[in-house]
């Protein structure tokens, strides 16, 4: 069997060599502009200003930095939860109403077609105390005081959820689409109310898509800094923003490098954990 299969796919030694040749340019590019600089930066976490683990001691002990990490995790968790809660119904409609799929795809992707800055400034115009939304609310008499929706946690979450929503919607859309369309009707015929059919059939079958989407959003949230910086307040400083400030304002490369490593380790362990979950959730 083995030789036949090998012949059919053409995966002989020559083709393996040519496959390597084909991925070489991209590999070199990533190595030179990403892996090497990152390695160099990370090496400074144990060498700048002096050899040793002082930078990590600083980062993992001092309340300022622990506060940053708490902010980052809180914002990321909240963003992920909101994205899942808002995204699941959208993905469901996209997957089950073919007529709405194109329209919704378009709407969901709109934020990707504008730059982060444009998008964020648009939110400022809408959300600030004398912005469009507050003026409408005040004008209609629904509120007496403007609602503070910007330069605080609310603003950060609004901005981040909007941008990250597609990352949870598309994997979910894929995994809902992959479900045999007869399963939910079958569950109904067997006596399952819509809610029970969802909990017992659709939800378990979409765990892989849900995990993939939630992990993407969480990981991207961990490293986000433009939106928190522009829409957040003084209490919404996150790790990524701090790394940038350490280098740009304080010139403390060692601490910046240690923070980066913490972020990287957190991200990688999350990705590994999520892969495990997705693999377990898939029926063999």
């Amino acid at each position: 069997m083995e030789p036949v299969a090998a012949d059919l796919t053409g995966a002989g030694p020559t083709s393996r060599a040519s496959h390597l040749l084909l991925v070489l340019p991209a590999t070199l590019f990533v190595l030179v502009v990403f892996a090497l600089p990152v390695a160099w930066l990370l090496s400074r976490s144990v060498s700048d200003p002096a050899w040793g683990l002082d930078n990590f001691r600083t980062v993992l002990r001092e309340p300022v930095y622990l506060g940053l990490m708490r902010n980052t995790v809180q914002i990321s968790v909240a963003t992920t939860v909101l994205c899942v809660l808002l995204g699941y119904p959208v993905a469901h409609v996209m997957a089950t109403c073919p007529r709405l799929t194109r329209l919704l795809t378009f709407v969901v992707l709109v934020p990707f077609w504008s730059s982060v800055l444009v998008r964020t400034f648009a939110w400022m115009v809408l959300l600030q105390n004398n912005g469009l939304i507050n003026r409408a609310l005040l004008g209609s008499g629904l509120v007496r005081q403007p609602i503070e929706m910007i330069f605080n946690r609310t603003g950060v979450l609004i901005g981040m959820v909007q941008v990250l929503l597609p990352f949870v919607i598309f994997p979910l859309y894929g995994s809902i689409r992959a479900i045999d369309p007869a399963l939910m009707p079958a569950a109904a015929c067997m006596g399952a109310t819509p809610a029970r059919a969802f909990l017992r059939v659709q939800l378990p079958l979409t765990i892989p898509g849900l995990t993939t989407g939630a992990t993407l959003v969480f990981v991207l949230s961990l490293g986000y800094f433009v939106t928190p910086a522009l829409l957040g307040g003084r209490r919404d400083v996150v790790i990524a923003r701090m790394i940038q400030m350490e280098i740009g304002q304080f010139g403390d490369w060692g601490v910046a490098a240690a923070l980066s490593l913490v972020l990287l380790v957190a991200t990688l362990s999350l990705l590994g954990f999520s892969r495990l979950l997705v693999r377990r959730g898939r029926p063999t």
């Binding site: 045999d180 007869a182 399963l183 009707p185 079958a186 569950a187 109904a188 015929c189 067997m190 006596g191 399952a192 109310t193 819509p194 059919a197 017992r200 059939v201 378990p204 079958l205 029926p283």
Partner: peptide, 29 residues
């Protein structure tokens, strides 16, 4: 509604729940 009709239905492509064992499929109703 269908879930209160108490009618048995066998679908063309079986429509078994892929994440549940055979016994769990039969136990579902």
């Amino acid at each position: 509604p269908p879930y209160r009709r108490n009618i048995g239905v066998v679908f063309q492509n079986y429509a078994l729940f892929p994440h549940l064992s055979v016994a769990a499929n039969v136990a579902f109703p």
